[in-house]
Structures are given as structure tokens and as C-alpha cells.
Write a protein that binds this DNA or RNA. Structure first.
Lengths: 334, 334
DNA sequence: TTGTAGGCGTTATCAT
DNA sequence: ATGATAACGCCTACAA
């Protein structure tokens, strides 16, 4: 048993044909005699041949990989990958990609060095394109991809207008759903806990809620973590003891808020109705389970991948935004 | 502006030197005149040159990528990537890899086709090696990697002995820690909720708990999900109403158990002390926060990556198991 | 339908 | 210290 991996040449020799013919068989190109196909396949089997990806990429200029980048200054690895939200994005992406025999290359772009590395990697042809999930609105990676003409698709609309495809949710409409639910349940004294107001999605959700609930409903700002949800809810409760309906801008914070209400002796939903956002796993595991606004994250991830592959296929393709509609999921909390 | 990416040749022409010299500068090989280095760097800057990864891989036989495989029959994408545990593994792996300018290629091997794809990908040189995280004990991917002589490292000891490196936790010792804590708190009537007994880690944790708490302590089997924790706790409570100390084999289930106890009117820790396992995010967000057995998952992920790179560097390297020690983290629940 | 031959962009081995 | 030059393994006109 020699150690060098068999090449097209070896297979061709065993099959008694030329390299070109073997290549054709492997790439499923017609115009190859059925009988010869059999012989070639047998030779492939016998030699244990596996095409060399690097050699193939060199000529096809495709790698079969795309970068899945979590971008934004200072987002510690453990915080990002631990977030159930990101897990859902990944899940949707992987699920779509597998059907196309492609795989995502995970990259964390939390420092300038790391961002430069992402760009370099793409420019070197280390991946055919990039899926960008920014954690901060002022992330400059999208613009750098555009400038370098690298195929890329974003999760969430870019802060400044850019010729680039992205997927997003109609956050504002989602928050309106939450407000209406609370109103329909007869709640009179509403309040809300928003996400960090630096990110567009947070602002949109707050705006949507106020569209329906009134521009003056009190808000406390959180940062999407469980702890911040507890803290914000506590502040809200301290300032407005008569609250009977609360919209919390994501489920993780809502779970925290639920605990605070509980310990304050308020029954949910009897005394205070609570609506979350995302429909992520915490929403299902809370007791009572959360009534929440569903964001089809997996689908959004899949769509991102679809847009990217289309763009890779046709570089001239015009950038497209795809906006998803939220839906209210009614459970026990409101 | 032409469209073809500049090559070594282009840079060489601009700098007025040979391709070889440019290559040397790029790869940081000594024996290059300082003055010429400057000229070459300027030419690189001017041309906007970026080395072609495929061409480089073709000769170096390295890709700079490793496969991070979640393996095991039928583990739906959303369940896997949503698991905070997997997020921690990824986090540790990415963190270590970035220092070595390498990136993980995410692959889900939940069907035979997908597993074959993983092997094929590696054999084709699509990645330099694989990190395998199996969800089932009877996963055959590790054996297939060994057979194909593909560098691989496992998370958790393989079911059947295999010449392959792996990282693992001393689960049994961890469970003993939990049992001792409960005993020290003066608890007399202990019970436990185990993970699925098909997986070695679950069996080890149960065995460890019984080492200290007694071979006959009642157990109810769960499957590591929140819901299964609720169900198992409910069964345990129904059969043993006098329980005053419970060890639940992971935090997710423990969070479920906590809710069940709560609704059953049992105060934690006053009436029933509860100890979890993992020290994952739910442990911190529960109220009371969970006393739990910490598993240094991020470190374990990093070590996996370290072992793999060492093996890639030196294919003759002997397989090594690395076992981590658990630690008790005391919070409010026990 | 099949074979021939050139080229993809690097690295690495030689001379010089 | 630098420059030719030969691989690396594959795809793809083009020719037959």
C-alpha cells in the first residue's frame, strides 16, 4: 500500500482510458459510453480515488464553502455561540446548504484583526462568499465586502444603505402584534422593556409597540440578556406599580422579567400579562410558557444562504432585501 | 481596472524580481535582502495582491480549515445548534483556532449520506482534520476516520476502544461532588434524574451519584431536555413525596425540575435541595440559581483543537485521552 | 465519443 | 541571496 493518494492519472491507467474521460465520468458529463462508465467506476472503486479539492478549486474557482461570520466589535465567543438565536440562524443555514453540498466556515470577527482576516480569507478564495451576522449596527464589514466585490448577504438591514442583499423581520409589525394582544386582553396600564436602543431592531420594536399602545408608554432599556431583563423589569415595576401588561423585546429578557414578577407576588397572566419576542427556546420552557412574537429565524438563515448562492452563481444579480412577517404565538403568559 | 485577480507573476513583474522572491517575502522566509523586501511589499500593496488559497493548498496539502462535525443518527439541526452545550464547545474551538489562523467548517452528520459526505470531504482534502462531537454512543464516524487514517479528535470517549485522541470529563467524580454536597447539607432522602442511559456519560453520572448516595437511590431517566426534566421530576416526586435532595444530570433538566418543585409547593432549597450538572447558562438564570457541577466545556473544546493540530503536524503522534476534572459551583439551589 | 495538451497559481528544488 | 523550472491534480477547449 503506497501512501500517495491516487490521482485521476492512476484511475485512468487502471481503466485504460484518458484522464479526461475519467474526469467526465466523475463530473457526470454526458457523452460517455455506458460501458466505459462502468469500467471507470470500477477503477475508481478499486483505486479508492477521491478527487483533490484544491486542484479542482484552482481551476473552477469554487471552494464549496461559504463564510458564516459573526461580526461586530467585542462580542465574546462564548456569548455569541451561546445565544439560542444564533444557533437558530446556523441551523437554518446548515440545513439549506447541505442540499447544495456546501458547508459554512465559522468565523468570529470581533476585532479589527479578525475582520481583516475575514476579508483576506475571502479575497484568497478561501470561501465563495459570506453570510454576515452583525451584533452591532456600526459594523463596517458589510461595506468592506461591497468595496472588495465579495459576494455577501446580511442578517438585518445595514445601518447605512448599501448595495447588498439582506434578510430581516418586520420588527415594527411584530411589536404591534404584541401591543394588540395586550390590549385585547383588556390591559390598561402597559409598559415595555426594549433591547439596546443602538440597534435598529430594538428601536423598531419599541416604535411598533408605541404605535399601538401609545407614544408615552414607559420603557426600560435592556441588552437582550436574561439579567438585563430582570433589572429592567424591576425598574419598570418600581416606577409603575400598577402595570398590568408588559411587552419585553426578546424572550431571554422576558424570562428574566417573569421571575421578577413572580417574586414580586404578581401572578402571570392574571395580574400582569407578558409578551415576549423571538419564540426561542426559553419561551417554551418558561412557566407559564411565553406568549411571544415568532421570528422565523431558521427560515431567515436559509433564505440568506439561498440569496448568497444565487449571487455567487450570477455576480451581476441585483441586491435584494427579503423581509419576513412575524406572527403572534399565544401561550400562557398573555 | 481589469477583473482578473493579480497573481504572484504580476507582483513579480511590478517589483522587477522573480516569482520565487515574492513568494519568499510573503511566506516570511529569511534570505531576502531587506531592500528588496520593501520593494516587493510595495508591489503587493500596489497590485492589491492576495495569494490564491487553492493553488497554495495544492502544493502544501493544507487547507487551514478543520471540520467540526456534529455526528450521530437523527439529531435535528435545530436541536443541536440550539443546545447551549454545543455553543460552548464551538466557542472554545473557535477561540483556540483563531490564534492559529484556522477556521472550523461546520458539518452535521445526522444521516448515512451526511456521514459519507464528511468522510469524502476529508479524503478530498477539504479540511485538514476533524473534531467529532457525537450525540450517540454507537456513532461509527470515529471508526471510519481511523480506518481512513484521517486526523480526528473526539469529544467523549468512544464506545469501543479506538486508537484516537479524545477529551472527556470525569463524570463519575462530578456526580460524587453533587452527592456529597447534598449530604453535607443534611439531606437524607435523595433522588436523581439521569440522562439517557444509552450514553456513557449518563451512566457514569448515575454511578458516581450512587457511589456516595447509595446504590438504591431512586432514579428517573430523562433525555437532557427541559421537558424531560420536568416529566422525570414529576415522576420522582409522585413516587417519593419525602424527597429532600435531588441531583439532576444536566442544568436544562434541572431548570425544568425546579419549576415542577416550585409548582408542587416545595421551596428550593429549604424543602428540597437541587444540584445540576454542566454549569451552563440556564444554571445562572434560574431562580434560585443552580448549584451545579461545572464542566469546563470551552477548555475541552480548545484542547480538542490543540490535540488535532498536533496530530496534523505529526501524523505519527500517539493518540491521547485528556480527562478534565469537574468542580462544584455553589449557588442558591443547594 | 474519446484523447491531447495547456493552464490554473503556488511552493520548492535546484542551480547560480 | 536570487532566479529558472518542475511539480501539485484537475478541468476544458480543441482536435481527432
Amino acid at each position: 500500500m503506497t501512501d500517495a493518494a491516487p490521482t485521476l492519472e492512476d484511475v485512468a491507467r487502471v481503466a485504460g482510458v484518458s484522464r479526461a474521460t475519467v474526469s467526465r465520468v466523475i463530473n457526470g458529463i454526458r457523452n460517455v459510453d455506458t460501458e466505459i462508465q462502468k469500467i471507470v467506476r470500477a477503477a475508481i472503486e478499486q483505486t479508492g480515488y477521491a478527487p483533490n479539492r484544491a486542484a479542482r478549486s484552482l481551476v473552477t474557482r469554487r471552494t464549496g464553502a461559504i463564510a458564516l461570520v459573526v461580526s461586530g466589535a467585542g462580542s465574546p465567543a462564548d456569548q455569541v455561540f451561546g445565544d439560542p438565536f444564533f444557533g437558530r440562524v446556523v441551523s437554518g443555514v446548515v440545513d439549506f446548504l447541505r442540499g447544495h453540498r456546501m458547508h459554512p466556515l465559522l468565523m468570529l470577527a470581533d476585532t479589527e484583526d479578525a475582520r481583516a482576516d475575514v476579508i483576506a480569507h475571502l479575497r484568497q478564495g478561501g470561501a465563495d462568499g459570506a453570510l454576515l451576522v452583525s451584533t452591532h449596527a456600526d459594523d463596517d464589514l458589510p461595506a468592506r465586502c461591497v468595496r472588495a466585490r465579495l459576494p455577501a448577504v446580511l442578517f438585518a438591514r445595514p445601518a447605512s444603505s448599501l448595495p447588498i442583499s439582506y434578510v430581516d423581520l418586520d420588527h415594527r409589525a411584530g411589536a404591534r402584534l404584541a401591543a394588540r394582544r395586550l390590549l385585547e386582553q383588556g390591559r390598561k396600564n402597559l409598559g415595555t422593556v426594549s433591547g439596546p436602543l443602538g440597534v435598529p431592531a430594538s428601536r423598531d420594536r419599541l416604535a411598533g409597540f408605541r404605535d399601538v399602545a401609545g407614544a408615552r408608554v414607559p420603557n426600560e432599556e435592556g441588552n437582550f440578556t436574561h439579567e438585563s431583563g430582570e433589572a429592567a423589569m424591576a425598574r419598570l415595576l418600581a416606577a409603575h406599580s400598577d402595570l398590568d401588561g408588559v411587552f419585553v423585546a426578546n424572550d431571554l429578557m422576558a424570562a428574566g422579567a417573569l421571575g421578577v414578577l413572580h417574586r414580586a407576588g404578581a401572578r402571570v397572566p392574571e395580574d400582569v400579562a407578558l409578551v415576549g419576542f423571538d419564540d426561542s427556546s426559553p419561551a417554551r420552557s418558561c412557566r407559564p410558557a411565553l406568549t411571544t412574537v415568532r421570528q422565523p429565524v431558521e427560515q431567515m438563515g436559509a433564505e440568506m444562504a439561498r440569496l448568497l448562492l444565487a449571487r455567487i452563481e450570477d455576480p451581476a444579480r441585483a441586491p435584494t432585501p427579503v423581509i419576513f412577517e412575524p406572527a403572534l404565538v399565544v401561550r400562557g403568559s398573555a
